[in-house]
Computed example of a mutant assay.
Amino acid sequence: MCNTPTYCDLGKAAEDVFNKGYGFGMVKIDLKTKSCSGVEFSTSGHAYTDTGKALGNLETECKNNFAPGYEAADFQLHTHVKDGTEFGGSIYQKVNEIEMPINLAWTAGSNNTRFGIAAKYKLDCRTSLSAKANNARLIGLGSTQTLRPGVKLILYQL
């Protein structure tokens, strides 16, 4: 059975060619691109020639996961988006024999925010102490002693 078009659809294709895509007194641009990792970027803007006013926007859409970061010898910064719903990141700093990371994460659509901080202090070439805490009120303490190459004694207290 054939669907007949409604009265308002008659001649719509021809009318669209004559009326759409023309901006008298206006300059308009629309750009879209997609990265190989699935991140979509779209930007649009328009300027009115008679008033000189301009308007623009930039949109980013992340779909498979997105994780930009920065890494140096003693500093790292990492952020991520997972499935478009979980956002997080970490900061890591090493000063002399002390390592300190901080982790943050948030899940969209909920009040589920996670935060953690940790530290590791290297006493000598064979011994280190570590501690961690998070917003779920969990605290961990640890000690690592290398007895000989390849054999470690690790003690944890949660």
Rank of each mutant, 00 (worst) to 15 (best):
146 T>E: 02
139 I>H: 15
95 V>K: 13
6 T>G: 08
131 A>W: 12
82 K>S: 12
49 T>E: 03
66 F>M: 10
152 K>D: 13
158 L>Y: 13
31 L>K: 09
120 K>L: 03
14 A>Q: 14
109 G>T: 01
142 G>A: 00
67 A>C: 01
17 V>E: 07
96 N>G: 04
153 L>G: 01
56 G>P: 01
55 L>I: 12
50 D>G: 02
33 T>C: 00
13 A>R: 09
105 A>F: 09
107 T>E: 04
9 D>F: 08
67 A>V: 06
60 T>Y: 13
154 I>M: 06
73 A>P: 00
24 F>C: 00
71 E>R: 12
67 A>K: 15
96 N>W: 14
68 P>D: 12
106 W>M: 10
155 L>F: 13
148 R>D: 02
111 N>W: 11
81 V>P: 04
14 A>F: 14
20 K>G: 09
44 S>K: 06
56 G>M: 03
15 E>W: 06
143 S>L: 15
157 Q>I: 07
18 F>R: 15
124 D>N: 13
69 G>A: 04
77 L>A: 14
141 L>H: 01
2 C>H: 15
76 Q>T: 11
71 E>L: 13
110 S>I: 02
72 A>L: 12
111 N>G: 14
127 T>S: 04
71 E>T: 14
75 F>W: 04
83 D>N: 06
15 E>L: 06
2 C>M: 10
129 L>F: 15
69 G>C: 03
121 Y>L: 02
121 Y>C: 02
18 F>S: 07
118 A>S: 12
127 T>Y: 05
20 K>E: 11
149 P>S: 10
39 V>Y: 05
113 T>V: 04
49 T>V: 09
20 K>M: 12
141 L>E: 05
55 L>A: 15
35 S>W: 03
145 Q>I: 12
64 N>M: 02
63 K>L: 07
38 G>M: 02
60 T>V: 14
87 F>P: 01
6 T>C: 08
109 G>W: 09
125 C>W: 03
113 T>Y: 06
144 T>C: 11
93 Q>L: 06
138 L>R: 15
85 T>R: 07
6 T>E: 15
115 F>G: 05
19 N>M: 10
151 V>L: 13
122 K>P: 00
96 N>V: 11
79 T>Y: 00
136 A>F: 14
92 Y>R: 05
81 V>N: 10
95 V>G: 06
155 L>S: 12
140 G>A: 14
66 F>S: 08
